[in-house]
Structure formats: C-alpha cells, structure tokens
C-alpha cells in the first residue's frame, strides 16, 4: 500500500511539474481571444503619443492606419469581443497607460442595454481565461484571496491544455518556425500592426443579432467608466467615449432605450463623449454578418467620420 501511495505522489508531482513547465514555456493559445496577449505586447512596446481603442469586435474592422496617419497617433486596437467586458479590459490596460495616451472607448449597445448579455459578460468563463492570461499574477492573488482554489486550478489547467494542443499541432505538422510565439497563433496573418483585423468580416444574411432584447440602462453598470476616467486623468491620459454603429432598423426599434443610454452618459460621464448615437447609424448594406460588424463599405464610411469627430475632440 505504501509503495502505491508513493507512486501516486510521484505521479502527482510529475504532473504538477509538467503543468508548471507548460506555463513557463512561451507558446500560443489557439483561440481568437488569445490575441489580447499580442495586443498587450503592443501596449508595452508602442511609444507615445498613443491612441488605445477599447471595445468589442465592432472596433476590429476600424481602419486604424488611417487614424494613425491623419491624427499622428500610434494606434493600439485592444478590442476583441464584447463579451470580454469593457470594465475588465480597462482594468487590464491600467498598468500600461502612459502620459498623453488617449483611450477611445465604446460599448456595443447589447453589452449594456441587454440584461441577459450583460450578465453573461460578467459570468462567462471563456473571457475569464484570457483576461487571466493578460495578468496571471494579479488574477492568481485575487482568486486565492477569494478562496476560489478549484476554479483557479480549472482555469490554469484549461489554458495549459490549450497551449499543449497548440504545441502538438506544430509537432504533428512539423512546423517549428513559430514554436515559441505567444498569444493567438495566427495573429500576424489575421491582424495588422495596430491590432485591427486584416480582412473584413464576411457578409452573411440575415444579420445575426444574438436575440437582443433591450431595456433601460442603469448608471451603476456604467459608473466604472468614471473611475477609469479618474485613473487616466491621474496618469495624464484622456478618455474619449463614442456610441457604436448600429443598423437603421434596429436603431429605430430601440430608439427609446438608446436615447436613455445617451442621456445617462451625457449626464454622468466625466470624460468626453465625441458623438451622438445617431451619428453612426447606417443602412443594413453597410453591415457584414451581425448588427455589430461593419463590412468594407461601412468601414470606409465609419473611419473617416470617426477621424472627423476625433479631430474635433482632441
């Protein structure tokens, strides 16, 4: 029996050591959201003056090279998916803010006006994993303080599994050229130097709308924007907010709630709001696959309009 227990302990130690090794060795995580890690690298490396874009996937098609050229800012597109949560992303970028940074924030309507989606954002495990990757030390401490040992182990284990499978693919395909890259394996192909998508979203009809069901917004869910604004001001950075684009028909359908959202922000937000919701309302033909994603045509209109608004605000 003792022999057996010793062997079980040896096996447990071996597995723990392997997990630690997998964590230490650089490697990619085959998941879109792992691109956040590559974007974090940009955040560390890119010099001032910088414009940091924060939002959901609606921001990914922004032509930030044009913004960069017109406004002479180094743009870092930190957006990935609305489901990550704006509060959570802003928390992650805080340690990397530099004086004179401009943080351009948007929140897709669904993320704040749709209660179910709002709840989902703050409970979904997928987002937690990649936010964890952004600053593992901080998240480990937080989890330990809360006594969430099992969920911490589960999360770290799942991330280690992802990395293992990524290594495995490279070994199976004998592709060792980018063995120790980090973040999203296809980052260099799918994203440009500013963190935008290289290719436009594909066009599908009918537009996906994630079954949105809007209701009146509550300031408690948005007050973190002021906290972030205060933090940014302390670090001589500036926060600009804009209302995201939306298809005409959906905008009209939800006008009451969208207006309420606008009024709430106007009244309470301490930073700068650069537009009205109606500024970025476009016909359906400007959209790609969902009510949040513009197609090439839509983006060619949105980005210049955005530049105009930014010029006014800056």
């Amino acid at each position: 029996m003792i022999k057996l227990i010793i062997k079980i302990i040896i096996c447990a130690i071996l597995m723990a050591a392997t997990m630690a090794l997998i964590w230490v060795i650089p490697g990619t995580h085959p998941h879109d959201l792992a691109a956040l890690l590559n974007k974090k690298e940009m955040l560390i490396v890119k010099p001032s003056p910088r414009m940091i874009l924060v939002g959901g996937s609606s921001v990914l098609s922004m032509k930030s090279e044009l913004i960069s050229k017109e406004l002479r800012y180094n743009v870092i597109d930190m957006s990935s998916w609305g489901g990550m949560g704006t509060y959570e992303i802003l928390e992650e970028i805080k340690p990397y803010l530099k004086p004179a940074d401009v943080i351009l924030v948007t929140m897709e309507y669904g993320t704040i006006l749709d209660k179910k989606f709002y709840e989902y954002i703050h409970t979904n495990d997928e987002a937690k994993k990649f936010l964890f990757l952004m600053s593992p030390g901080r998240h480990i401490l937080e989890s330990l303080k809360k006594g969430e040992f099992f969920s911490l182990f589960k999360l770290m284990h799942e991330l280690a599994q992802m990395k293992t499978k990524s290594f495995l693919l490279k070994i199976v395909t004998l592709n060792f050229s980018h063995l120790f890259d980090i973040g999203f394996p296809g980052f260099k192909d799918e994203f440009n130097a500013n963190g935008d998508r290289n290719s436009p979203y594909m066009i599908f009809r009918p537009l996906g709308d994630s079954k949105t069901n809007f209701s009146y917004p509550e300031w408690e869910k948005l007050s973190f924007l002021n906290d972030f604004n205060d933090f940014a001001a302390k670090h001589q950075a500036r926060v600009l907010f804009y209302f995201s684009h939306f298809p005409e028909n959906k905008y009209k359908e939800n006008l009451t709630f969208i207006n309420a959202y606008y009024e709430l922000m106007k009244k309470n937000f301490k930073g700068t709001i650069i537009n009205k919701p109606s500024d970025f309302v476009y016909p359906e033909e400007y959209f790609a696959d969902t009510i949040y994603h513009l197609n090439e045509k839509g983006e060619s209109v949105r980005t210049p309009e955005m530049i105009k608004l930014l010029k006014k605000a800056l």
Partner: peptide
C-alpha cells in the same frame, strides 16, 4: 470547435 481550436483538436484526435 472554436475555429482556431479546430486544427489543434484534429491533430490531437489524429495522434
């Protein structure tokens, strides 16, 4: 599978 996970998962399955 999530699209980026498809190939690694398939490699794992095949192996």
């Amino acid at each position: 599978f999530a699209k980026p996970a498809f190939l690694p998962e398939m490699a794992t399955l095949a192996l």
